[in-house]
């Protein structure tokens, strides 16, 4: 099973659900199938660990990365780059918008509503079952409702990004997948894919999972990881 996305993909979810890691790796996966890919950082909320940190490896793959102007890169100001409007007017084969967390993070989508109207848009809710507020179905549904109300756009699919970072085990991936399946049963929304690191991915029983698995390289690493531990500019592109 592969992820075959086209057009506009918005990656949303609750704060800290792993939207940016998901968006960055999704961009790389789409690019590896030969499609043109653009990714924009719409996260106006979170001051650290944003798409901007993965800029160099993404650009090395030929992905168009849209970030705020350099002079505002380290500001905690809600700045939306004008280039975001440009890429929505002339989208790539796949245009990925990395939204901010929670309802406040997607407020910006409402301002882009005119541009998104009548375009095929996939709006993903990323869920990590090990984060506060989304460890049960009710929590996930509450976040969904808040995101939809604030972003003025409906969620069309679910993604499980279950992880405890370096402490993640295969069992955690299954647990997260099962939660997202339950949310899917409640909402009728499809589970678009789940994520796993290459190491965990190789241990998964794919008969237990009826959706694609996005292999996820961590780009947003803490500063004490040696430079050699960072993913090379050519990412692992297995889905």
């Amino acid at each position: 099973m592969t992820i075959d996305f086209t057009d506009i993909v918005i990656v949303a979810g609750n704060y800290g659900s792993g939207k940016t890691e998901t968006a960055v790796n999704l961009a790389a996966a789409c690019r590896s199938t030969g499609k043109s890919v653009a990714i924009a950082d719409l996260d106006l909320v979170n001051p650290y660990f944003r798409t901007r940190e993965a800029r160099i490896p993404l650009e090395a793959m030929g992905i168009q990365v849209v970030l705020p102007d350099r002079q505002y890169l380290f500001a905690d100001l809600p700045i939306l780059a004008p280039a975001v409007v440009d890429i929505l007017r002339q989208p790539a084969d796949v245009t990925i918008l990395d939204a901010g967390g929670d309802d406040v993070g997607v407020t910006v989508l409402a301002s882009l509503a005119a541009l998104l109207k009548n375009k095929p848009v996939r709006m993903l809710q990323v869920i990590n079952a090990f984060r506060p507020f989304t460890n049960d179905v009710a929590g996930c549904l509450k976040i969904r409702k808040e995101i939809e109300a604030s972003g003025k756009i409906n969620i069309t699919g679910l993604v499980s990004n279950a992880n405890l970072m370096d402490d993640t085990s295969v069992a955690h991936i299954y647990q997260g997948y099962d939660l997202v399946k339950q949310v899917s049963a409640h909402t009728g929304l499809p589970v678009e894919f789940i994520t796993a690191t290459p190491e965990i991915s190789s241990q998964l029983d794919f008969n237990r999972i009826s959706c694609p698995v996005l292999t996820l390289d961590r780009h947003l690493l803490p500063p004490w990881k040696p430079t050699g531990a960072r993913p090379p500019s050519h990412l692992t592109l297995k889905t």
């Binding site: 800290g16 990590n128 090990f130 984060r131 506060p132 992880n163 970072m165 402490d167």
Partner: peptide
């Protein structure tokens, strides 16, 4: 069980 938290959230919960 373990949960994944930001330092700021974890300080609040603590």
């Amino acid at each position: 069980a373990k949960v994944l938290m930001k330092g700021n959230e974890a300080i609040g919960e603590a």
